[in-house]
Structure formats: C-alpha cells, structure tokens
C-alpha cells in the first residue's frame, strides 16, 4: 500500500465540518426532545388512552420499528409532497428523526410503565386521583427513571443513524464529509475524521444524557 495520508485539507474545510457538526447536534436535540415527548404521549395512549387510539399508535410504532430510517426519510422528503406537504431538507430530516425516535421511545417508556408496582396505581386511586393524574404525578417520573439508560442508548443510536440525512442533502456532518471528499479526493481521510467526530459526539451525548437524568430524577427514589 503506497498511500500517503494527507490531512492538510482540514485547515481549508473546517468551517464545513463545524457547520455539519452543528446541524447534527441540532437534529438530535430536536429529535430527542420532541421524539421523547411523542414517545410519552404514545406510551400514555397505549397504557391508559382511548380504545380507538390504541391500535393507531400500535400500528405507527410497528411500522416505524420495522422499516429502515432511510426509507422513512425518503418517504417524508420525496413522497409527502404528492400529498401537498413540501418540506425543506432540514425540516424533513427533523421530522423523520422525531417520528423515528417517537416510536422507539414509546416502546421503551411503555416497558417502564408496565414495571410500575400495582400498588402505585391503587394508592393513587385511593387518594381520589384520576387515571391521568396518577399517570402524570405518580407513574411517569419513576417509569422514565427506570428506563432512562435504555432511552439514552436509543437516543445515541438515532443520532448515529442521522448520518443518512445527507442523502436528502441536509447539510449534516456526513454531508460535510461527502462534500470534502468530492473536492479533495481524500475520501478515506475525510470519513476517518468524521467517524472520529461521531464517536466523540456519541460519547459526549451519553454524558449529557446521564447528566440530564441526574438533574431531572429525584436522587433517592431510585427503582
């Protein structure tokens, strides 16, 4: 192998990389907050919601979990305009992230709710709370706390999966790498660098999620 590694392009192209990182971070920030919120709503529907809504949510969750993110993205970006819903690259990418994480997180959160001791519901009822009040004030936070590690892992997985939004020309980190390699013909180096950045982002994201968990959950009431 007579290949000379060459990283000089980094100086010229770092603005692209920084911008790509910023977009990747933006995508996962919106995806995590809105996706987990959607997941909570779906988990509530499947646990306590109206009967008609349960199969709807179940179908959504199964459909998303059993199709590739790339196809979901293409469907949203290329397919929805024929229904009159024209989205920009970035809007489509954001929507796809939210829809995707919403389905996965609803399943994870549901498992957390199912692990709630029955006595918690009974205690809530005995205090004259409505089912929604019990869900909101008694069940939700301990359930989230139980599954926070699993949810965090899923957020990291979705962040790494976001690399494919470059395929609809959303200008994320992978898009920057593609751009650089097309200009410099330094494909291997460009992808090595962006892979390293992704690894760093994944480690950082895990730390941030750990900290968020530490902040929002009561410290003593673990279990």
């Amino acid at each position: 192998m007579n290949y000379q590694f060459e990283f000089g392009w980094l100086f010229e192209y770092y603005p692209q990389i920084v911008k790509g990182i910023a977009i990747t971070i933006q995508l996962i920030a919106v995806g995590a907050v809105a996706g987990i919120s959607l997941g909570i709503v779906c988990a509530w529907v499947r646990a306590l919601g109206p009967a008609w809504a349960k199969p709807v949510v179940a179908a959504y969750v199964e459909l998303i979990r059993n199709t590739p993110f790339l196809i979901q993205l293409f469907f949203i970006f290329f397919g929805l305009p024929s229904l009159g819903l024209q989205l920009s690259e970035l809007q489509a990418a954001n929507l796809a992230m939210v829809v995707n994480l919403g389905a996965y997180s609803s399943e994870i959160i549901r498992a957390g709710i199912q692990a709630t001791p029955k006595g918690q519901f009974e205690a809530g009822s005995s205090l004259a709370m409505t089912p929604f009040e019990i869900f909101r004030h008694v069940v939700l936070v301990p359930s989230l706390q139980r599954i926070w590690p699993a949810l965090s892992s899923q957020v990291v997985i979705v962040m790494l999966g976001s690399a494919v939004v470059s395929q609809i020309a959303a200008e994320d980190l992978t898009f920057a790498a593609n751009f650089i390699q097309s200009r410099t013909f330094r494909a291997f180096e460009a992808y090595m660098v962006s892979t390293a950045v992704y690894l760093l982002l994944a480690i950082l994201l895990r730390q941030v999620l750990g900290m968020v968990g530490w902040l929002i959950f009561p410290r003593r009431a673990a279990r």
Binding site: F188, M192, S194, Y198
Partner: peptide, 11 residues
C-alpha cells in the same frame, strides 16, 4: 456501536 454504520460502510 459508537459510530454510524454509514461511516463504516464508507470506510
């Protein structure tokens, strides 16, 4: 597990 599958494919 800490890097995108897409990057692994590119590499």
């Amino acid at each position: 597990q800490g890097t995108p599958l897409l990057m692994q494919l590119f590499i």
